[in-house]
Structures are given as C-alpha cells and as structure tokens.
Design a protein around this nucleic acid. Structure first.
Length: 240
DNA sequence: GCGACAG
DNA sequence: ATCTTGTCGC
C-alpha cells in the first residue's frame, strides 16, 4: 500500500508547532469506524544512544487479539525529544513501518497522547490525520491536563481536562494498577476510545497490540510464549 | 521568573 | 526513550 508522504521532515521546533496548528483542526473526534478485524499497536524504541529510531507496528486480530503481522523500520533519528513535539521525532519511522504491512489495520493504538496535547495534536492524532485511519492515544504518563483520582476498579475512569475542555480519560485497565491516559486520536469518540482500550487490555495494564509492539521495539529476545500461556524458551534471538 | 514536560 | 537481574510484596 502507498502512504504518499515525504518522510524527511527537516523542521525547526517553531515550524513543527505551526504544522500542528494547521493539522489539529483536521482531527475527527466522532466515531467513523468500519468493522474491526485488524488492530495495530504502535511503539518506538531507540538504538545506539538514540541515534537510530526503531518503529514497530504489530497487528492483532480483533476481538481475539491474536498476533497476525509485525512490521519494523529503522531510520537515523532526525529530531530531538521535545515535549509536545514527539511525533516529529517518531512518526517518520512509524510511517515507514506502516508501509511495510501487507494491509493497513482498521485501528491504530499508539503509545502516547492523542488530542490530550497542548495544541491537540499528540502523536496518535498526528498519525491518524496523516493516514486517515481511526486512531487512539494511550499514554503511560500525563503530558497535560488535570483529573480527579480514579477509583481503583478496572474500567473506572476520570475525565482529563485542560481548563473547561475534556481532552481525554484517565482509565484503570487493571484494578489497583496505575491508570493509563487515553484520548481521541482520529475518527473515534472518547466514549468508544474507553471501550476499545478496555477490550484491547483484558489482562494487562497496556493494550495487547501495544505490549507486543513494545516487546519488538525494545527487547530483541525471543518472545515465543506468554501470549497464549505456553512454555518459556530462552535462547533464540530473532532479528527483524 | 518558576515549574511542568508523552517517549 | 535508555543504562539493567533479581527481588520484594500482594
């Protein structure tokens, strides 16, 4: 498949913020999803002291969450980490990985914020707009926004607010475990976002697609079992 | 001017 | 994000 985009983004932080201001209005905050069959987790890791960006997209079937395809892409890191500008550092590699899939997924679950961002264009929203695929942001920590304490039961959540606007939800995917920060990425309402994240994370804190992408993006060890409760095998490395 | 600050 | 195994606790 083709995602016609030049992946060479040589921008200054000021220019990057201008791009965000231009794209933020294009985010669709309502449900515009088709049938879900393939859901992808997106994550990025770094090698060589951060000089190489490694993006992974793991596609799982829905709703059974069985791994069906993975794609990896490595690129020289071309943008520093600047809070609020994460997508300019990670998306070039992510787009390259997406293009390597045999088919695009029906939904993207991204490690990072959606519209819970200063200019409402976190990495999940940015990726959603560029690909026009439904997308959801799942952050492990907060970028912006305030919220009440979240009840400890799985499924409980509190609105994440920036002033008067609700920009996301702080959701408990596991009882008694630190909640995750979820927000609209593109073409998915906040209500649906909460439902889908809960369905995608039936057992662990993070959604299965993101967990798998995490594995492939950081560790380089084999991860044969664990997904379906099988035996553990140490030893076999697997490259890409 | 002083903090806060996704990954 | 990354440097890194085993270990303490529910």
């Amino acid at each position: 498949m083709r995602l016609r985009h030049a992946h060479a983004w040589k921008l200054t932080p000021a220019e990057a913020r201008a791009v965000q201001a231009r794209l933020a209005p294009l985010v669709v905050r309502e449900d515009r999803l088709g049938p879900l069959k393939r859901v992808a987790g997106v994550d990025v890791g770094f090698e060589d002291s951060g000089q190489i960006t490694r993006a992974v997209v793991s596609v799982l079937s829905w709703p059974d969450l069985v791994p069906v395809e993975d794609a990896v892409a490595r690129r020289p890191t071309s943008f520093p980490y600047v809070p609020g500008l994460l997508s300019f550092r990670e998306l070039p590699a992510v787009l390259e990985a997406l293009e390597r899939l045999s088919a695009l997924p029906d939904l993207l679950l991204c490690d990072g914020q959606g519209i819970a961002h200063p200019r409402r264009l976190g990495i999940a929203a940015h990726l959603g707009v560029l690909t026009d695929l439904p997308a959801i942001g799942v952050g492990k920590t907060r970028l912006i926004g305030a919220h009440d304490e979240v009840p400890s039961a799985r499924g409980a959540w509190s609105a994440l607010r920036d002033g008067d606007e609700v920009i996301g939800a702080v959701l408990r995917t596991r009882a008694g475990v630190k909640p995750v920060y979820v927000s609209i990425g593109h073409r998915v309402s906040l209500e649906t976002t909460v439902e889908l994240v809960l369905q995608a994370a039936p057992r662990y804190r993070l959604p299965e697609p993101i967990r798998r992408a995490d594995q492939l993006a950081s560790r380089r060890k084999a991860f044969a079992a664990e997904t379906q409760g099988r035996r553990k095998n140490i030893g076999q490395d697997l490259q890409d």
